[in-house]
Design a protein around this nucleic acid. Structure first.
Lengths: 251, 251
DNA sequence: CGAGTTTTTGAATGGTCTCAACTGGAGTGG
DNA sequence: CCACTCCAGTTGAGACCATTCAAAAACTCG
């Protein structure tokens, strides 16, 4: 595990200049500086796609904040059913302070860099650093709101709406590359299997696949090349997701 | 609204002796004392069953922590579909600091007493009082964990499992009266309509009703007197909910 | 290219919803 | 006190949506 060793330079470039950025890593430049002053142990750990970072019910290996990459957080039921609970991306955190065992399993979906400290250290940092505490609170409030909005997806939306909703959210937050020049097309990376999409949407892989072809036949998007989605008509995708402009559904 | 006036004595008896109790109101004795010292405005507001306390998309009227009673927090979709997101009970909070509009609608399910301050005041209290900040953070971390566990209910469980799961959770947290003397029976108050149960479980009222009779015919419980549930066999109810002892599912 | 995996597609099954009718209890007014 | 209304809850029948099982097609990687 080699705590105390930074294996990568990439974190430096992303450190906040004055501890204010929402999009920066939770362990920003200020906190890194404090860690160095106090000579606390920390590490940047890297994982390859498919690597299991934490396992539900087992001791959480560390407390970390993602620097680069995407990971999936899931809950398993005793009989093997799996429910995705969130897609993690910078600066989302992995691990729980104050709790021995991990509540979720976490799997890397891409190459991943995580800034790690021990759970105990994070807990004491949380007590000492008001700024960190505030950012952590706001991060968790955002998580809570997203989780509750996701309840409407699983509880009240049809399978077409669910898939469209997921793609809209991913387009907004993770995989958005760029609108293709000269067109209205949007290209979105969704580097996960149909099965895992199903685990987030609470549907079978077959239904996920069927709904992709459904959206394709409607001329809304193309998913040939199954990990890259080209959106032809974003507005119609939002409509298919049951998202409307007047704020009734959008969070 | 008459901020600054305590309309009820009932809060006093529940104030913490030394700011440590998990089950106390968020605005415990210590904080009440601080509020008095600084002569800040606060109020205890009361609501009757069915009263709408906050409306989704409208300005949140206050920031408050429940002293007594139960309330339902729900999200509405544009076409009228409703998804319950949490059952609120002491010391849960209503309203959002730092946000103008309420994300959820909140309805009183019983007589309700809420300790209220303005959102602005709560925000500044949060900055000033480390103890309050810690308790608020822990409260929200608990909310997040419950919301994510609920995702497994909506995404991966059958309607029988959903209803059984809800009853188990309510038995654990809200409506538990007592095991009836001389028997193994448990009596649980569930003071909400079948329709609202459906809104929490993502099912129609008819299916909720059918699943009640299903559990009745299996001899697990009785729901005649539809707002009071008598559980004959708690263990079998847990099994029906897909909750097992080995921690795979329990949070 | 060939083996294994992922994705798509088809057909049949089954679970949940919708529509509709009926039941039962609470409250109202004659 | 009883008939009436109203609302919540129950039950049934049929439709529909999503799942399961099965097989074919496409893609990945050695």
């Amino acid at each position: 595990m080699s705590l105390g060793l930074v294996h990568s330079k990439s974190f430096e470039g992303r450190a906040c200049p004055k501890c204010s950025g929402e999009t920066e890593n939770l362990f920003c430049a200020c906190i890194l500086q404090i860690l160095n002053q106090k000579s606390c142990s920390y590490a940047v750990r890297t994982f390859k796609p498919g690597a299991v970072i934490a396992m539900e019910g087992y001791k959480a290996p560390f407390f970390g904040s993602i620097i680069t990459g995407v990971a999936a957080q899931e809950i398993s039921l005793a009989d093997g059913r799996v429910q995705g609970v969130s897609l993690l991306r910078p600066p989302d955190v992995i691990g729980n302070h104050l709790q021995e065992t991990s509540k979720y399993s976490v799997t890397a979906l891409s190459n991943l860099e995580i800034f790690c400290v021990s759970s105990e250290l994070f807990d004491s940092l949380l007590r000492e650093l008001p700024e960190l505490r505030l950012r952590f609170l706001n991060m968790k409030l955002g998580d809570l709101e997203r989780a509750r909005n996701w309840l409407t997806v699983l509880g009240r939306r049809s399978s077409t709406e669910r898939l469209a909703y997921l793609i809209v959210r991913v387009a907004q937050k993770i995989g958005f590359d760029a609108s293709l020049p000269g067109t209205n097309e949007l290209r979105v990376n969704l580097p996960i299997t149909r099965e895992r999409i199903g685990s987030f949407l609470g549907m079978s892989t077959e239904t996920v696949s069927r709904e992709f072809t459904h959206l394709e036949r409607a001329g809304i998007l193309s998913a040939r090349n199954s990990r890259v989605i080209t959106i032809f008509n974003y507005r119609r995708l939002e409509i298919a997701a049951g998202i409307d402009d007047d704020g009734g559904t959008i969070h």
